[in-house]
C-alpha cells in the first residue's frame, strides 16, 4: 500500500461528485421508478422464525442506534414491530445507546397503537442502560434486577406483560436494531453465553460484519439496511418508506459504479498521455 494520489482530484472534482450524488439520490425519491425487489434468504429466515413463534412468545427489541441513522433504522424497526404485534407476541423494548431510548419508546407506542396494543399488557419499554456489555450479560441473570423500573419509572413487576419473564430463558429472540458494533456484542455475550436467538436489524454498512455469524448459525437471519427493511415490508404485505427508498439506493449504487469506471478511464487516459 503506498501513498495515495491525494491531489489528483481537486476540490472542484470532489464537489462535482458530491452534487451529482445528491441529485442521483434525491431524484428517485421525487419521481418514483418502482423497481422490482427480490427477497433475500436471510430476511426470509427472520420472517419465517418470527412467523412460527407461538402467540405471546416474548421478544426483546433493543434500539442500539443513534438518531443519525434513523432513515435506515426506523423502517427496519417498524416492519419488524408490525410483524411481532400482528403475531400477538409480547414485545419488550430497551436501548443500549441513550439516543435509542427516545426513538425506541416512540416506535413501540406508535406501532403498538396501530394494532390496539396496550402498554404494560402487550408491550413494555424498559429504558436505557449504559455499558452495553454488562447490560447484555446482566439480562441473562435477572431482567428485573437490570431494569427494576420501566422507561416511565414504574416497577416493571407491576406490569402484567412481565409475568413469567425472568431472564433470557423466557425470551424467544432478541432483535437488535443497531447502527454500530452492538449487534456483535449481542452475539458474543447473549448468544454464545446464554444461547438466546439473535436477529440483527442493522445498517447496510454494518451488514458484512454480521455475515460470518449468519453463516456459523449464530443468527436467526439478518435484515440489513433500507433493502432489508424494504424486503421485510414486502413480506408482511405492507410496503412503506423503505420500498420507496430503494429506487434512490439503486441510483446511488449505479452512480458509484459509473464513478469507478470513469475513474479508471481517466487513469488509463493519463497513462497513455504519459506514455507519449
Amino acid at each position: 500500500m503506498g501513498q495515495n494520489d491525494k491531489n489528483k482530484m481537486g476540490i472542484q472534482g470532489r464537489h462535482f461528485i458530491f452534487i451529482l450524488m445528491a441529485i442521483v439520490v434525491a431524484a428517485p425519491l421525487i419521481f418514483r421508478v418502482g423497481l422490482p425487489l427480490r427477497v433475500t434468504a436471510e430476511v426470509r429466515q427472520v420472517y419465517g422464525f418470527l412467523d412460527r413463534l407461538p402467540p405471546h412468545s416474548a421478544v426483546i427489541f433493543s434500539f442500539d442506534h443513534e438518531t443519525s441513522t434513523l432513515p435506515e433504522m426506523v423502517p427496519l424497526a417498524e416492519a419488524l414491530l408490525r410483524h411481532c404485534f400482528r403475531k400477538n407476541l409480547k414485545v419488550f423494548g430497551m436501548a443500549l445507546l441513550a439516543e435509542g431510548a427516545a426513538v425506541g419508546d416512540d416506535n413501540l407506542r406508535r406501532i403498538g397503537s396501530e394494532y390496539d396494543k396496550k402498554y404494560g399488557e402487550d408491550y413494555l419499554f424498559w429504558g436505557f442502560r449504559p455499558q452495553f456489555t454488562t447490560a447484555i450479560l446482566a439480562l441473562g441473570e435477572r431482567i428485573d434486577h437490570e431494569f427494576p423500573s420501566d422507561y416511565t419509572g414504574q416497577d416493571i413487576r407491576s406490569f402484567p406483560v412481565m409475568e413469567g419473564i425472568e431472564n433470557y430463558k423466557d425470551i424467544a429472540a432478541v432483535i437488535t436494531v443497531g447502527d454500530g458494533d452492538i449487534p456483535v456484542y449481542w452475539v458474543n455475550y447473549a448468544q454464545a453465553r446464554y444461547g438466546v436467538k439473535i436477529i440483527p436489524a442493522v445498517t447496510a454498512v454494518m451488514a458484512t460484519t454480521m455475515y460470518p455469524f449468519l453463516q456459523s448459525g449464530q443468527l436467526v437471519g439478518l435484515a440489513a439496511g433500507l433493502k432489508g427493511a424494504a424486503e421485510y415490508e414486502m413480506l408482511i404485505g405492507k410496503p412503506g418508506r423503505a420500498v420507496k427508498g430503494m429506487d434512490a439506493q439503486s441510483g446511488a449504487h449505479i452512480f458509484v459504479i459509473i464513478l469507478i469506471l470513469v475513474g479508471n478511464t481517466v487513469m488509463i487516459a493519463g497513462r497513455r498521455r504519459k506514455g507519449r
Binding site: N4, D5, K8, M9, R14, I17, F18, M21, A252, F255, V256, L259, I260, V262, G263, N264
Partner: peptide, 8 residues
Amino acid sequence: ASAAYRGF
C-alpha cells in the same frame, strides 16, 4: 462516492 472514484 469520492473514495470509490479515487480508490478503485
